[in-house]
Amino acid sequence: MSLALKSVGNASALWFVLPCLLALALTSLYPVGFGLAVSLTNWNWGTQLDFIGMSNYATLLTDAEFWTVMRNTLVFAASATAIEILLGFYLAVQVDKLAIRTDLIRALIMLPLMMSGIVVALMSKVMFDPFLGIVNQFLGALGLGPSAFYGAAATAMPSIVAVDVWWQTAFVFIIMLAGLGSLPTDPIEAARVEGASEFTIFWRIKLPMLRSLLITVVIIRAIDTLKVFDLVFGTTGGGPALSTEVVQTFVYRTAFSYLQIGKAMATMILFSILILGVSIALQMFQRRGEVDR
């Protein structure tokens, strides 16, 4: 009966989504499939191409350098995400209180977000120069000793975290400010009439209503910081002595400097599994909270 009609409807829907499916197949499905295959070989981009099974993975998992790189990446992602979330959300709460139009403030705070990571990285090298940089001048004025910043293993990672905070806090700020602005006013006014303090209103009413959005922002920032490349590439290049080497710079070096494409792909696949795991875990945490309420 109406089967003919239905299949026509589906066929035209297929034409609408087909270009999208083809583009995604070429740019994501093919590379993942091909990459999985390559990760089982010792390919060097050239003629050396032998199937070596899981040995890339086995080597990686016993390689101290790999674990250092993983730890650096996680340390960077966790600290940058935590600081950006706290600072960005706190700023959004403060700006939300202001009794003036905040469009201009928002536009100014948003500026760093419009910049590319590599530019931010190079800008930070000017600011953080151990001898001539303006930041050390400020520290000196505060009576704090000059810092080597990118030059020393102890300060290099915190410096990159600080740069990411400068660059990306505005993202958290913008989303959370929009979230605060879209809260329904009735429950808040009802609480105020009941005599609740602003402190109570924030913790008991506003925060629970924003919980899901906040976790979404955490997920976005966590994934984005795990994938960090430009900042490290543009500042320390992974040094000094592996202290800031992260997964994507490590893979870039492995693939393009050492031509170990099999090992690089194996790293990428392990790393992708990690990213998937982190985002699924955070999403489950988000869902569980929703069921509770």
Binding site: L24, T27, S28, Y30, P31, V32, F34, G35, V38, W45, I223, L226, K227, F229, V247, Q248, V251, Y252, A255, I261, A264, M265, M268, I269, F271, S272, I275, L276, S279
Partner: peptide
């Protein structure tokens, strides 16, 4: 699929595409 493509790291896609 869209979420995965958006979420996974660049070099996962770039290295195989380099040879293609």
């Amino acid at each position: 699929w869209l979420i995965l493509a958006y979420m996974l790291p660049e070099f996962l896609f770039v290295l195989p595409m380099f040879s293609l």
